[in-house]
Amino acid sequence: MARIVEARRLTPVTKLFRLDAPLIAAAAKAGQFVMLRVREGGERIPLTIADYDRAAGTLTIVVQEVGATTKRVCALEAGDEILDVVGPLGTPVDIAPGGHACAVGGGFGSAALLCLMKELRARGDTTTAIVGARNKDLLILTDELRAICTSVEICTDDGSAGFKGFVTQRLAQLIAGEGPGRPDTVVAIGPMVMLRAIAETTREAKVKTLVSLDPLMVDGTGMCGGCRVIVGGQTLFACVDGPIFDAHEVDFAVGMRRSKQYVRQEKEAVERLACAATPALVEAR
């Protein structure tokens, strides 16, 4: 059980939670994830660790409502308990120190840049965060990122804030020397389509690029192999070998196809939850 000490809505579909989880907070590093479950009979879902506070013993996660379980999580408020939280799982990000690291966050993936940028800044790296959303209302945690990054680049599809265009376009400009300049390393966290676009953007320019993959997982500890991904022609388990991989080696086509194995059931679960609407959400609390 982990008690929610803070619950804050960031956009109509995303919510930030700070959890009382001292053991996980003490061990967490950027790039790792937790598995959580919100009810008896509930599924285990992986969520990237957005931030941690070792002194306070808290762990921050940001959840986007996409499936039945994430909707159940987002119905929770401060003071509520999350049934099961386990972690930190996976291998932390590994970046050679002393360079310019550019982290790209798409959608709620921006949240996971928080602890990464803090860690890199603390050891003296130059840090740029590129965050993107469809419009300015969907941007999250930009103030928090500004407080900890050397520079923050905002992108919106409609130009309602910052650069008008995709994060990949702005990243290409940086690689060409604009703004904060060419990064030595790019780390991207977000939807798989965005990760693939980032990999294509940096491939020719030969910028070392890491992506955080988010495949389907059941246990998250290496036991089931459901999260297997193809990297450099090898089959690896995202939960123990990853979830961070060299973007230029990842087979995104297979990854995207495999992540859609349960779309029919996910849709069914969401519809069922919508029908039950309020009672089910209240039960989840």
């Binding site: 009979g41 509930g42 599924e43 379980t69 246990d219 089931c224 192999g225 459901g226 349960y262 059931q265």
Partner: peptide, 30 residues
């Protein structure tokens, strides 16, 4: 082996035994 519909026995049995997929959608793991 990466095709959709290929699973390890561990994944298959874990989904059914630990996660109770036989009760989906009463339970959440299909």
């Amino acid at each position: 082996e990466d095709l959709n519909g290929v699973m390890s026995a561990n994944e298959f049995l874990t989904r059914v035994n630990l996660m109770r997929a036989y009760d989906f959608p009463e339970t959440d793991t299909p």
